[in-house]
């Protein structure tokens, strides 16, 4: 068999093995479920409030938006985190020492991170169905929208995660990424519509993927007439595809370059140096 095909299959299996192990690990399960519980509690208490200008539940609006945020967390931060940690502990160097190992590694990581993102989405959506009114989960067109919007969201965010993961060498610097993402959440209409914000801020938010990820999830799960309270009074699918597509192209062009550069620089002594550093942090 062609070595690349072999590596691709090995990578798929690798993703499967890591997926199984992450969902049997207490610490990981806690990391997946704790934010979900926090979100659901928040949404639960918001269910009585209404979206301004409508009598629609604010809680029911927030849940889909938060699912969009989950895609950004999973795809971008999730992958970046994996890359940074795997580089520090030598996983990546091992992949480099194996024929086509980097290909297998990357495929495995993409399988793992996108599966975790989608499973996370299901975990958050399912309980919400029971106490939130107005989500159109029975409508096939909702699932149709999810079927293209979720993959598009992942294609836009995963390469960005790969880029950041390649650039950050010290796991402690992950905070540098998390902080701006928090700021972005505030202006991207996740927990509250942004129509009240100044125009320039609205404009700035719409440059980034997060706003569009939230909008996409809302367009799938909320009734059509709620589009009226969005910017421009529509779900703006065309603009959404354009912006997320642009981020995807940017990421897919730059990520391989940065990842190759990162991989080229890996060696046993670099891993040893990081181990030394990490030991000092602990000790």
């Amino acid at each position: 068999m062609n070595p690349k095909t072999t590596a691709l299959r090995a990578g798929l299996r690798r993703g499967g093995i890591e997926l199984r192990s992450t969902f049997t690990n207490g610490q990981d399960l806690w990391n997946y479920f704790f934010p979900t519980v926090v979100l659901l509690v928040a949404v639960f208490f918001m269910r009585g409030a209404t979206v301004p200008g409508t009598d629609f539940s604010l809680g029911a609006r927030t849940l889909p938006s938060a699912l969009g945020m989950g895609l950004l967390f999973g795809g971008l931060l999730g992958l970046a985190q994996h890359l940074v940690v795997d580089r520090e502990d030598g996983t990546l160097l091992r992949a480099k020492a194996i024929p086509n190992g980097m290909l297998g590694y990357l495929v495995g990581k993409l399988v793992l991170v996108s599966s975790v993102s989608m499973i996370g989405l299901a975990i958050q959506l399912t309980p919400g169905m029971f106490f939130l009114d107005g989500l159109r989960l029975g409508d096939p067109s909702a699932w149709l929208t999810l079927a293209w919007a979720v993959p598009l969201g992942l294609v836009a965010t995963l390469p960005l995660g790969a880029m950041l993961g390649s650039l950050i060498e010290n796991p402690r610097n992950m905070g540098l990424v998390v902080l701006p993402v928090m700021g972005l959440i505030a202006v991207s209409g996740i927990f509250y519509p942004i129509s009240g914000l100044p125009g320039w801020l609205q404009g700035a938010a719409q440059v980034f993927p997060l706003y569009w990820l939230g909008l996409g999830m809302r367009s799938a799960l909320l009734p059509a007439d709620l589009a009226a309270v969005e910017i421009g009074g529509s779900w703006r699918h065309l603009e959404m595809v354009a912006v997320l597509g642009a981020w995807a192209v940017l990421g897919l062009v730059l990520a391989p370059v940065l990842m190759r550069r990162m991989a080229r620089r890996e060696s046993g002594s670099r891993v040893a140096a990081r181990r030394e550093q990490a030991m000092q942090r602990v000790g």
Partner: peptide, 10 residues
């Protein structure tokens, strides 16, 4: 390679 903690869960 001198492993440290990679693939710890495998």
């Amino acid at each position: 390679l001198q492993s440290w903690r990679d693939h710890g869960r495998w």
